[in-house]
C-alpha cells in the first residue's frame, strides 16, 4: 500500500494555559499499517491522541484526512470521519453482554423496539472478520470476560462502525503473556484488513512485534517517524529518552524533526 497517509497532521501546536504540550508536531498514519506511537511519560502521546479524537481542540496546525483538510471540533466529528479511539480503561459496562456493549449508544432499532437479531448478527460478523476465537457466546456478560477478551470486545466495538483509523491506548498494559500475544495478533489483523492502526505502547517488544512504523515523541516534539525495519531496539529507546539517536531525531535539541 503505497498511497498517501489516510490521516496526516502538520505543525500541530497545543497549549494548556502557559504550558505548551505539543510543539509543531507532524504525524502520519497509513492504511494497512500499524503505526506505533512511543514516548516517555509526559511526552504528549495522550494529548496528541486526544487532539486526533477531537477531545482537545488544536491551537494551530492542519488536520488532513484522506488528503482533504478537515476541521475536527469534537468527538462526533472524529467518529464521523471514521476515527475510533479505544481508551485504556476500555469503557465497557460489566452488567451488559458483548452485543449490548458493542452497540451501546448506537443501538439498532426496528420502530420503537431494539433489533436484537440484527445487532447480534452484525456483532458476530465483526468478530468473525477479526477471526476472534476466544469468545464462546455473544450473550456473555462482559463481567465474566478475561482482560484479553475485554480488550477484544473494545477493539471490535471500534471496528464495528466501518472505521478507517483505530487508535489503541496501551492495549496490552494490564495483560498477561498469552493474552498480550492474542491482542497483538488482533492488532496485526486489523491492519491486514486494511485499517490504519495507531498503537500507543511502552513495551518495545510489542512495538517491534507488530508495528510497521514508529513515531517517537520527545518532550512534545516529534523526534522521528521511521520504518520499524530500519531501526534497532536501542535506537528507539534513545529517541524516547534523548530525542535523538545518531542521524535520527531532533537536531540541537530544538526545532526541526528529521
Amino acid at each position: 500500500m503505497s498511497q498517501g497517509p489516510v490521516l496526516e497532521l502538520r505543525g500541530i501546536n497545543k497549549s494548556f494555559g502557559a504550558v505548551q504540550v505539543l510543539h509543531d508536531v507532524a504525524f502520519s498514519v497509513y492504511s494497512g499499517e500499524v503505526t506505533a506511537l512511543v514516548g516517555d511519560n509526559g511526552a504528549g502521546k495522550s494529548t496528541l491522541v486526544k487532539c486526533i479524537g477531537g477531545i482537545h481542540p488544536i491551537d494551530a496546525g492542519d488536520y488532513f484526512f484522506e488528503g482533504e483538510k478537515v476541521h475536527v471540533s469534537g468527538p462526533r466529528d472524529a467518529a464521523d470521519l471514521g476515527v475510533e479511539i479505544v481508551y485504556q480503561d476500555l469503557a465497557l459496562c460489566d452488567n451488559l453482554d458483548i452485543v449490548q456493549n458493542m452497540f451501546l449508544g448506537r443501538e439498532r432499532k426496528s420502530g420503537l423496539v431494539l433489533d436484537e437479531a440484527t445487532m447480534e448478527e452484525m456483532a458476530a460478523k465483526t468478530l468473525d472478520g477479526l477471526s476472534v476465537r476466544t469468545v464462546t457466546s455473544l450473550r456473555q456478560y462482559v463481567a465474566s470476560l478475561s482482560g484479553g477478551q475485554r480488550q477484544t470486545v473494545a477493539i471490535a466495538k471500534a471496528v464495528l462502525w466501518n472505521s478507517k483509523v483505530v487508535i489503541l491506548d496501551e492495549p496490552t498494559a494490564a495483560l498477561g503473556v498469552a493474552q498480550t500475544a492474542q491482542v497483538l495478533e488482533l492488532v496485526r489483523r486489523l491492519a491486514d484488513n486494511g485499517l490504519a492502526v495507531v498503537l500507543i505502547s511502552h513495551n518495545m517488544n510489542d512495538v517491534f512485534a507488530v508495528s510497521d512504523r514508529i513515531a517517537a515523541l520527545y518532550l512534545g516534539r516529534m523526534a522521528a517517524q521511521v520504518k520499524t525495519s530500519e531501526v534497532t531496539h536501542s535506537q528507539v529507546v534513545e529517541l524516547i529518552t534523548a530525542g535523538r539517536s545518531g542521524e535520527l531525531g531532533i537536531k540541537n535539541g530544538n526545532g526541526a524533526a528529521s
Partner: peptide, 10 residues
C-alpha cells in the same frame, strides 16, 4: 473462519 459456530456453540 466462521464465528457463528464458535459464537453459538453454547
Amino acid at each position: 473462519e466462521t464465528l457463528p459456530e464458535q459464537a453459538h456453540k453454547a
